[in-house]
Design a protein around this nucleic acid. Structure first.
Length: 225
DNA sequence: GACCAGGCACATC
DNA sequence: GATGTGCATGGT
């Protein structure tokens, strides 16, 4: 890293000091993390976790087993996670991607050239940029920054990026400001979700937020978000 | 009984 | 290219 610390570096230190490590997605296996990335789409983690437990009990947290499962039975097993018809299809598409292209080996998959693998994941129906990056980072340990709705809110409140910055722009923004370190990206994303949840939605004027001192003059840029 | 949650694809203008 | 809508459950 070079020069003065960016806002993003200062914000990270404050968040980590205030909240401590979030220990996101330890998971029993990389594939469990991948399944979780799909199940948690627009869904409370608690609900996704229930579905993961059921799949684990049924022995379906493996690419081969998931491919072989009947889709209607899979739907019922993951019902608590919501969007269960879509997600059952998405999980099987993801599992099929691993078995068809990498012989079911996640080790082989994550050894793939990064850009090729990311494009491959994005080509799967139901895997968008956030889910793809979550898989690469949290299951594969690869240094790619995950952007989610909370990140959008936090960044735009602080004026750290243009109001119309999209997923890719925000991802580049973080990656350019930070060391390319998967453990850092992992923790930072989790901390942004934490602070976004606890403040951006419920406190329009950023009361009590650990990042309040980093706000621009005049307060939050987009408090309505 | 609203409103929300760690998105994404597809239709329509 | 931007904007709108369906998908679905469980907690507050």
């Amino acid at each position: 890293m070079h020069g003065a610390d960016s806002n993003l570096q200062v914000a990270y230190r404050r968040l980590l000091e205030h909240y401590g490590r979030q220990n996101w997605w330890p998971g029993d296996s990389p594939f469990e993390v991948m399944v979780g990335a799909v199940l948690v789409q627009n869904t409370n983690w608690q609900n996704a976790a229930r579905a993961i437990e059921t799949l684990k009990d049924e022995g379906l947290l493996a690419p081969d087993a998931l491919v072989a499962a009947a889709q209607e039975e899979l739907q019922e097993l993951i019902r608590p996670a919501g969007y269960f018809r879509q997600k059952a299809a998405r999980l099987q598409s993801l599992a099929r991607f691993v078995t068809d292209n990498y012989g079911g080996s996640l080790e082989a998959m994550f050894a793939e050239e990064f850009t090729t693998l990311r494009a491959g994941l994005l080509s799967i129906n139901g895997i968008g940029p956030e889910t793809a990056d979550s898989i690469l980072l949290y299951a594969g340990g690869l240094p790619t920054f995950v952007i989610d709705t909370y990140t959008h809110r936090v960044v735009k409140r602080h004026g750290w990026a243009a109001a119309d910055a999209d997923y890719h722009a925000l991802k580049e923004h973080f990656e350019n400001a930070l060391d390319r370190d998967a453990a850092l990206f992992n923790e930072y994303h989790a901390l942004l979700v934490r602070v976004g949840k606890e403040h951006c939605r419920t406190a329009p004027r950023c009361e009590g937020c650990p990042l309040a001192e980093l706000l621009p003059e005049g307060g939050p840029v987009q408090p309505e978000n």
